[in-house]
């Protein structure tokens, strides 16, 4: 079962570098990685989704906790939290198929951020599986470009850990 590690860190590249070193050294599979500002001034949130059992995830938490620059670490099974990512896509939308494309986007609750002549810039947010299905659904129209943010997560019903 994949585990989510959510780490509140001092917001500087050296601390991020050190944290990544701690993770890399353990040679585990990182499925997703996202870094961004947090709700705490001077701190950033690093979110990792790793293929690891509870024991391995717990060891990683303890290694990260003893690093200077780490403020808080939370770990939970991915089904115990809300895990979401954002995707941006440039998708072909030839003149005759506008309605069809629009229908798919609407079905997934995606939104059109920018409209070109025969291309749309689309965003969608959701779970990893949801975002993947959205991408699959748009593939037949031709995807010209695609970026995904990596997942961020909060534990369901967890105590406030990051504010």
């Amino acid at each position: 079962m994949a585990h989510v590690l959510s780490v509140l860190l001092d917001q500087d590249l050296l601390t991020l570098n050190r944290a990544m070193g701690v993770i890399r050294r353990r040679n585990l599979r990182v499925e997703s990685l996202a870094v961004g500002p947090s709700g705490v001034p001077g701190a950033a949130t690093l979110t990792l989704v790793v293929s690891a059992d509870a024991g391995l995830a717990d060891r990683l938490v303890r290694q990260l906790r003893k690093m200077s620059g780490t403020r808080r670490v939370a770990a939970f099974r991915s089904d115990e939290g809300v895990v979401r990512e954002l995707a941006l896509l440039r998708v072909h939308s030839p003149a005759g198929r506008h309605a069809e494309v629009a229908e798919v986007i609407a079905l997934f609750g995606g939104s059109v951020v920018e409209e070109g002549e025969d291309e749309l810039l689309v965003q969608v947010a959701g779970s990893n599986a949801f975002v993947l299905s959205f991408i699959r659904a748009l593939e037949p129209f031709g995807i010209a470009d695609l970026v995904r943010s990596g997942a961020v997560a909060l534990e369901r019903g967890g105590v406030a850990a990051f504010l």
């Binding site: 024991g55 060891r59 303890r62 290694q63 906790r65 003893k66």
Partner: peptide, 8 residues
Amino acid sequence: LDPAEIGK
């Protein structure tokens, strides 16, 4: 002293 050592 180091909690990361317990069970490592």
